[in-house]
Amino acid sequence: MSDHTLNPEKMPHNPEKATLEGKNKFLAFWFFLGGETVLFASLFGTYLALKGSTNGGPAAEEIFELELVFVMTMLLLTSSLTSVYAMYHMKNNNFGKMQLWLGVTVLLGIGFLSFEIYEFTNYITNEDFTFRTSAFGSAFYTLVGFHGGHVTFGLLWIITLMIRNAKRGLNLYNAPKFYIASLYWHFIDVVWVFIFTVVYLMGKVG
């Protein structure tokens, strides 16, 4: 496609769905999220089936620290809002502000990830609670770790997009890419809502 069709003088209202490629990406990504739902459901189900199997190791209510989880939750929730801001500026064709808000999103994401790494190291070194301690341990680290993996991948994805497109600005070729990256980021937040509810809060309640 020529540059002209990708960089029209007036951006359409929904630049992410203005081309067939964009429409395809948009739809495919939603379908993918439908599949991801089943993936996380399988992990949640496994966790729920195994959360009592502590094999003599620490149990959920003994180790979880809600303060930390609360801070992590706030970081991730806020990052969801900032990525909404980024998309708001994308729709208004304001590339600079979009990059800015994506940058904030990335920083918040990195903050979240650092806390999670700290949390895991703390459990491993101070609580003697590892992936191999018990079936509960395996299930906990796998579920939360899969989410952490998604966060990491999302961060790398957004950073790559930002750097790659820093110089050339927004066009109809990369708008869908930014849009689905932000969808992915929201989905990560959706999963986290269930993790902090089901794993941490309900784990603490017992």
Partner: peptide, 30 residues
């Protein structure tokens, strides 16, 4: 359907290659 298999295979891989306990009844697995 495939995501369920993906998870199942991951759990089995972790059990066999990285010492987790999902399917190990001796460690509370199921």
């Amino acid at each position: 359907a495939f995501p369920a298999l993906t998870v199942g295979l991951f759990l089995m891989m972790f059990d066999r290659l990285f010492g987790s306990a999902f399917f190990n009844p001796d460690m509370g697995g199921n």
